[in-house]
């Protein structure tokens, strides 16, 4: 009975901790009025979401994509053009953009998943660049000058605001929803199939998992989430151009996951919360004094993480004293044996 209570308390403590963190994020715009700081948070939200999309492929499935800026850009273009040309509701255009990007990604990447090895990574780089060049040279896509979304009165229906606060909340909601979705995938049959493919494709095939099918599934889901981020970005900035898809942007999508810990669904969020404010701070503080120094310092931080904590911040945390302390003192986590015993006995 005591054991049961201990496990129940632990789960309650977990929920309370998550609730407190969520409340802090909800409360931030009430106390923070600076649009600059809010902008950094919005950046964190959508870059972490993009990185979660990358992580489904790179972290969970072991397929390193360097073309996520292209999916994001394509999603942004698809929804912007629909809004500008046909005047449909932006929220509907987001769905249309996600479907369009899913189809394109599925068709492009099917052939390179039949091959093994680094082909996927190579094609993802080429894909991004090809799409960008195509857009620069296409009248329909507005060439290099890009596409602007109409300005106007604040409106939820048109997802258009002068203030940053609504974007903050929508961005936060998007990040949390995608996190819940990725967590669901990780614990599902698909998640396990993807992990077996990462570990050993032959062995996965031997136990009846079709690696091509699941890799396509992963790339399609990942591209759809990136397209959603693209829609959010376009609605926030209200202007998009082909620069959105340059190679460096795809790399930026990878960094939060690597720094936070690509083996964890939470990794991109932790990494995003650290790296993006850091990058913005360095840019704001130093780029006027010595242009480029911010990029240099950013690179140094990245190198230090990769050299000393290759499993990312969460990878380090999972085996650290800090986790021990948090588990014992704050969450009052019972031992693994106790949790298992209670769960085996039929729930809490």
């Amino acid at each position: 009975m005591d054991k049961k209570k201990a496990v129940r308390d632990y789960h309650r403590n977990l929920a309370v901790t998550a609730g407190i963190i969520l409340l802090i994020f909800i409360a931030i715009p009430i106390f923070v009025k600076s649009p600059y700081i809010l902008n950094v948070f919005v950046l964190v939200f959508y870059m972490s979401t993009l990185s979660m999309a990358w992580n489904l492929l790179g972290g969970m499935t072991g397929q390193n994509s360097l073309g996520h800026a292209a999916y994001m850009g394509l999603g942004a273009y698809a929804s912007c053009l629909l809004v500008v040309r046909t005047g449909i509701n932006p929220w509907l255009s987001a769905v249309a953009g996600m479907v369009a990007v899913a189809v394109v990604a599925g068709v492009i990447f099917y052939p390179c998943f039949i091959l093994r090895g680094p082909y996927f990574t190579l094609v993802s780089i080429a894909f991004g660049e090809a799409i960008r060049q195509f857009i620069i040279n296409s009248e329909f896509f507005g060439r290099a000058s890009g596409v602007g979304l109409p300005y106007g009165k604040d409106s939820w229906i048109d997802f258009r605001f002068g203030s940053k606060v609504p974007y903050y909340y929508v961005g936060l909601a998007m990040m949390i929803l995608i996190y819940a979705f990725m967590k669901k995938i990780e614990r599902s049959k698909i998640g396990y199939a993807l992990k077996t493919i990462r570990e050993d494709e032959d062995a996965a095939a031997a136990i009846g998992i079709n690696p091509i099918k699941y890799k396509i599934m992963a790339v399609v889901i990942s591209a759809m989430v990136a397209a959603l981020v693209g829609f959010f970005y376009a609605s926030y900035i209200r202007y998009i151009d082909p620069e959105l898809m340059i190679q460096a942007k795809s790399t930026e999508a990878v960094l939060p996951a690597i720094v936070g810990g690509a083996a964890f669904v939470e990794g991109p969020i932790i990494g995003g919360l650290i790296m993006i404010p850091l990058s913005e701070f360095l840019r704001a503080t130093y780029s006027a004094i010595l242009p480029g120094i911010n990029m240099l310092m950013y690179a140094v931080v990245l190198l230090v993480v990769i050299r000393f904590r290759p499993a990312g911040i969460l990878g380090w945390y999972m085996n650290s004293r800090a986790k021990q302390f948090v588990d014992e003192r704050i969450l009052k986590k019972p031992s693994v044996e106790v949790i298992e015993e209670v769960e085996m006995a039929g729930g809490r």
Binding site: Y192, K195, T196, E199, D200, D202, A203, A206, I207
Partner: peptide, 14 residues
Amino acid sequence: QLFTEMTVLENLEM
């Protein structure tokens, strides 16, 4: 051809 980073039980579940 085991899934080396998964636990024994997870391998069996697969």
